[in-house]
Design a protein around this nucleic acid. Structure first.
Lengths: 147, 147
DNA sequence: CAAACTTTTGCAACTAAGTTGCAAAGATAC
DNA sequence: GTATCTTTGCAACTTAGTTGCAAAAGTTTG
């Protein structure tokens, strides 16, 4: 359980993030954002639906994730099994396009997905004619806890 | 249109692949495999359903893709928009686990996805405790034709 | 090449995922 | 506190993916 001071700090952080993204403050947005701030792992849509204290409609969760994406609050992590996960952007991402140049790790045992913020994506040399805009690196294996 | 000799060569190749994978020869498998051999790009499930001359049931396409995966005939390419694409394995992949250590490219203009067989995935240094088994690199941008 | 056997296919029915329009409820501004 | 604008939940829908089963293929054997 969080100490009162930590709790208040997180609530302030939530309001800050929503405010600077010019989003109105609603229970749904606060709850979902809190979930991301409390979790080390990336979250799938159904994680979010399942873990919020108050139940929100699926549509609300979809729309909230969508607008968080647009505002650069979260980013997606593609995984090999076709399940998209979402994670907080640590650095400020500009509206629309992100600078998540870090590597993602998916644990094959426990299924957790994390951002390795300190591991930057390596440079990739492409054949002539291909113009890269974004490089996604997803490493899968066993994580710290599972090995 | 293909010349007769090329056509015969491809039909032989199809039979070879199916035979060495110990799969029985059926119209569905031949058609889907032909589609992969004829195409430079990776194919999504609905591409396959749409492009086969004879229409096959969705279930048949799912099951064919699944068994081709198991036999190491094709591999999946994860993309950021949650749409899995499938592409032929060039080198022989052993049953179950693949050696597709090449980079994939997704064009944001035309949507085509290709294997860059000659671009190998770079080594990634992970923090202590993480044990990598597989590294997926997906580069998106504009492809040869679109730039 | 035909009977016996095995595998694959298509259908039906189902669950899960994702989208859209709209009226009601909630948030913000004045 | 009221007016205005935004967000939410509901209903209804489309698309994606799965499972069981009988019919139709493919394969094997004599």
């Amino acid at each position: 359980m969080l100490f009162p001071t930590n709790f208040i700090m997180m609530e302030n952080q939530i309001l800050n993030i929503l405010h600077r993204s010019q989003l109105s403050i609603t229970d749904g947005r606060k709850s979902i954002l809190r979930l991301f701030l409390e979790s080390d792992n990336a979250l799938a849509h159904h994680d979010i639906e399942a873990r919020t204290q108050v139940k929100f409609d699926r549509v609300t969760v979809y729309r909230t994730l969508q607008i968080f994406m647009e505002k650069g609050i979260i980013h997606t992590i593609p995984t090999a099994d076709n399940s998209i996960k979402y994670a907080l952007c640590r650095d400020e991402c500009e509206q629309g396009h992100h600078h998540d140049d870090h590597v993602h790790f998916v644990c094959k045992k426990c299924g957790s997905t994390v951002c390795l913020e300190d591991v930057h994506v390596p440079a990739v040399r492409l054949p002539k004619g291909f113009k890269p805009q974004q490089v996604e690196v997803v490493v899968s294996g066993t994580c710290k806890e599972c090995s």
